[in-house]
Design a protein around this nucleic acid. Sequence first.
DNA 1: GCCGTTTTCGGCCCGACTGTTTTCAGTCG
Length: 572
Amino acid sequence: MTNAEIAAAFEQVADLLEFQGSNPFRVRAYRNAARTIEDLPEPVAKIVADPQRSLTDFEGIGKDLAEKVTTLVGTGSLPMLQELLAEIPESVLAILRVPGLGPKRAAVLYRELGIASLDELREACQSEKVRALKGFGAKTEAAILQGLDIASEAQRRILWAQADEQVQAILDHLRPCPAIEQLQPAGSYRRGKDTVGDLDLLAVAKDAKRAMDHFAAYPGVADVLLRGETKMSIRLGTGLQVDLRVVPAESFGAALQYFTGSQAHNIVLRSLAKSRGLKVNEYGVFRGTKAIAGRTEEDVYGALDLPCFPPELREARREFDWAQAGALPRLVELGDIRGDLHAHSTWTDGVATIEEMAAAAKQRGLKYLAITDHSKRVAMVNGLDAKRVRRQWAEIDKLNARLKGITVLKGIEVDILEQGGLDLDDDVLAEADWVVASVHYGQNQPREQITRRVVEALQNPHVSAIAHPTGRMLRQRRPYEIDLEAVFKTARDYGKLLELNAHPVRLDLDDVACAAAKNHGVLVVISTDSHRVDGLGAMRFGIQQARRGGLTKEDVANTRTWTQLKKIVGKR
DNA sequence: GCCGTTTTCGGCCCGACTGTTTTCAGTCG
């Protein structure tokens, strides 16, 4: 069983227990354990199999949950979960996803009216049976019906890049408002999560009412969900929910800290404060009733003797341990990047010439750019055979002779063939500065076969890196199945790199995988896989993920000069 | 169910908003 599957089982247990009205802290214990396991940089099965190690060493996993994990790994199922499912139909869990309905009310609906599915819920609301229940009323009934519509509207998380567009548009709308003095987006958007569920905006305003009126007048607003003194929620026509909070200037830092989250990070922070006789809320840090911090985030963390964590690290993973040890990693930054090592040109499916790409890279301050067009197997895009790639490289040599301030590397994105092996002969690859290998075909093969192909490619002396190693290549396609553990191990043993493809919809090496690579001592290379000049701008998406994975400048290969880098990958 | 510079019991983050209440429970983040 994979970590994700084990985590999902625990999440389901938590949902069911919550529905049953169990001790909320017990529910939280299951959710915490699910998170811990999901974030683990190695397969939990490996830890279980190792007699030297114990699952209870991990945060939030005690004796009981360690046993349950062992059961799940060994048998693939969990008796406790089966028992819960025998008592409660799985379909009721969908009801918990309806906005405004939590475990308490869902349980009343199930107990009093036998409602066990979304369809039954809609039916009961429409026939006005729900309003008769104690604690419910006509307004609640209407709210549930509206919530049902939202739930069925595939209300899923959107990609960070899509959220970014909407954030910028809203900020542009809000900034001219004279009542607003400070404005800052928070939430998972600020933490740079690969996907965003809703947006949180934070403002300091002379006049909260005017600020909210201005917010409500944003042309993209479809619906005002709620509006109070300090908080207002709207839903955009795009389906995205946006919350605006108005806070006093002396609380701005505390509010920014609080609304940036994550929730798990805040829980740890507040517990820590409590153990020191302090209280943290969105208005500040308090000793008794006296505020001792709140204006800036630095003050808030500082009052607790903590460094101001970069938002990307605030996930209650390891940041508090790092801070305690005084060893918070200095995360990689966009400015550290010296070169881009995956780009296409008009020779295959790119839309810009090599020279145009090089000029754009130089303009972005890069010192080198590898042109890695496809090899011949990708016939659809006129992939390069030995003859054409050599012609391209001769042209790059000529180009380099007249370019100043940037070096174009002679690269290739060589296909890892279905039956194994690479799409170009070793004598050709040997002439390249930079070789990325990737799986484009045979993605439905069994896990062992794909793993073998990639591992074999990593063992080829001419290969520099594997592109999209987790197989998350296209948004709409399911990633291929691969034994990442084996890939990390081989990459480490052979001194090869794994590529974090920074395309906004192709986040192939996510934050957890980045952390795992680091854990295995494997360097990551962040590349944009650009097919056009503005594609080079996607580097920032990759940086975000790498930062979330705790990667420093040293963990990312393309922060090196090309001279340093080619020693790492053993090129001439 | 986890956890321990108040350690094996008794805690577990904290506040805003809403609707149905007549002082508060439920939900959300």
